Amino acid sequence: DENEERIRAFALYKGIDPEKARELWERGEINKDDEEKAWREYK
């Protein structure tokens, strides 16, 4: 689903483990601007 892809995109963008990215996502600790930037680059 799209959230999974967004988490993966963010992990790649930040160079972090996707599981770590998922934890940040679930806790609401992902910066929305960074997340959008990562998503645009990923697509």
Rank of each mutant, 00 (worst) to 15 (best):
W39T: 01
E29T: 04
R8H: 10
L24V: 03
P18F: 15
K37M: 12
I30N: 02
E2I: 13
K20L: 14
E5D: 09
A9R: 08
D34Y: 03
E35N: 08
G28Q: 04
K20W: 11
R27V: 04
E2D: 13
K43G: 12
E23M: 10
L24Q: 05
L24K: 03
G28S: 04
D33I: 09
N3G: 08
R40Y: 13
D1Y: 13
D1E: 11
Y42V: 05
G28W: 01
E36N: 07
E2F: 13
D34H: 02
I30K: 01
L24E: 02
E4F: 08
E29W: 07
R22M: 04
N31Q: 09
W39P: 01
E41A: 13
P18W: 14
R27G: 07
R27S: 11
E19R: 09
R8S: 03
Y42A: 06
I7S: 00
G28D: 04
E23N: 06
I16P: 00
K37C: 14
I30S: 01
R6V: 05
N3K: 15
R22S: 02
A11R: 00
L24G: 00
K20I: 13
D1P: 11
E35M: 15
I7P: 00
K32D: 07
E5P: 03
Y13N: 03
Y13S: 03
E19L: 11
Y13H: 06
F10Y: 15
L12M: 14
N3F: 15
N3P: 07
Y13M: 07
K32I: 10
K43H: 13
F10L: 15
D34K: 01
E35V: 15
E36L: 08
G28V: 01
R8F: 14
R27A: 13
E2S: 12
D33Q: 11
I16W: 05
F10D: 05
G28P: 00
E41G: 04
A9H: 04
K32H: 09
N3R: 14
D17E: 11
A9I: 08
E19M: 11
D33N: 10
R40F: 13
G28A: 04
I16H: 00
A38H: 03
A11Y: 02
D1I: 11
R22E: 02
E2N: 12
I7T: 00
N31G: 08
L12D: 13
R6M: 09
I16D: 00
N3W: 15
L24R: 02
G15K: 10
E4I: 08
K43F: 11
R22F: 06
Y13P: 00
